[in-house]
């Protein structure tokens, strides 16, 4: 018995359902992008993970050690003891403090006191090295230069300019309020997704499986849009732009974007799989309802 006779939705209903599928795809993409943006603004884990990444720390240690070597040649002291006094653990902690400061500024939109490098062990090593060399150089000058270099390495952005700019803007606009509002964008986008999905379900209510066609198209379409966004990002070559100004900042930026890319790529893969699974189920439901002769004719 042929049970494939279904009550099809009318043309306007199908048109509205396709429009709702298009909107669902758009809201899914907007949700994901806003989630990533909010993560950059508020996720302490993302920034601390970037700041304590081994390749970032290796790069920073190399910059600092090279600079100590340059100063040792210029001032005539022994570089190795000073290099060994710059502890990787202390540098990691300093990076964590800097990441916490940066997260606070991004999340709240307010400027805060900037943590600075301070290492008693390094200070003592510099004094000992300069005393041993007997050149009469002032160890405080060398200490100040190395400290400034470490600060510039960990804070590749002109944080004083950023905080001054932020203070200036905060007098004229409620930046913390705007930042808090921006955090509401992802849940709002998700609510819009649910509304679009609900609309599709209503319009396809005559036959439950028909809605799979619309959901599958929306989900897989959103996945494809995310893939296209990845291509546009690759064309922008932001990391190359930053590396011309600061190799260290480019490293940190690349590490952070790598994490975000993995998340976005995972989401795109899930959306594509779910979308094509819906379309597969929709297409193959017909086989269960058709008699053998009708299946051959189809």
């Amino acid at each position: 018995m042929n049970t494939a006779k279904q009550r099809k939705a009318s043309l306007p209903e199908r048109g509205f359902a396709w429009a709702a599928a298009f909107l669902l795809a758009l809201f899914l993409v907007a949700s994901l992008f806003s989630l990533l943006a909010v993560q950059v603004m508020t996720s302490a884990g993302l920034h601390t993970g970037t700041a304590t990444n081994d390749s970032v720390l290796d790069g920073q240690m190399k910059i600092i050690h090279n600079y100590i070597g340059v100063l040792a040649d210029a001032y005539g002291f022994e570089a190795e003891t000073v290099r060994q006094s710059v502890s990787r653990d202390e540098l990691r902690d300093f990076n964590l403090n800097a990441a916490a400061w940066w997260t606070g500024v991004l999340a709240e939109g307010e400027s805060r006191t900037i943590p600075r490098w301070y290492s008693p062990a390094m200070e003592q090593a510099i004094r000992n090295a300069v005393d041993s060399a007997g050149t009469g150089e002032d160890p405080n000058v060398i200490l100040a230069e190395i400290t400034e270099k470490i600060d510039r390495t960990v804070y590749p952005l002109r944080e004083s300019l950023l905080t001054t700019g932020l203070d200036f803007v905060n007098k004229r606009a409620d930046i913390p309020g705007i930042v808090r509002s921006l955090r509401q964008v992802p849940p709002l986008c998700l609510v819009l997704c649910i509304l679009a999905a609900g609309l599709i379900a209503l319009l396809a209510a005559r036959e439950v499986f028909s809605s799979l066609k619309y959901y599958g198209t929306a989900l897989a379409g959103a996945g494809l849009v995310l893939a296209a966004a990845g291509i546009i990002y690759a064309v922008m070559q932001l990391k190359a732009m930053l590396s011309q100004a600061s190799a260290n900042l480019a490293d940190e930026f690349g590490t952070m974007m790598h994490t975000l890319f993995l998340e976005a790529g995972g989401a795109a893969a899930v959306l594509l799989l779910a979308g094509f699974a819906c379309l597969f189920i929709y297409r193959n439901r017909f086989e269960k309802h058709m008699a053998p002769g009708e299946e051959q004719a189809a």
Binding site: A4, Q6, A21, G221, G223, Y282, A298
Partner: peptide
Amino acid sequence: MSTKTERKPGRGIYLLPLAVA
């Protein structure tokens, strides 16, 4: 409201996401 018998969609259905994307 149509009550025509539906045929199994062809493999072209997998290209529908492109219409959105």
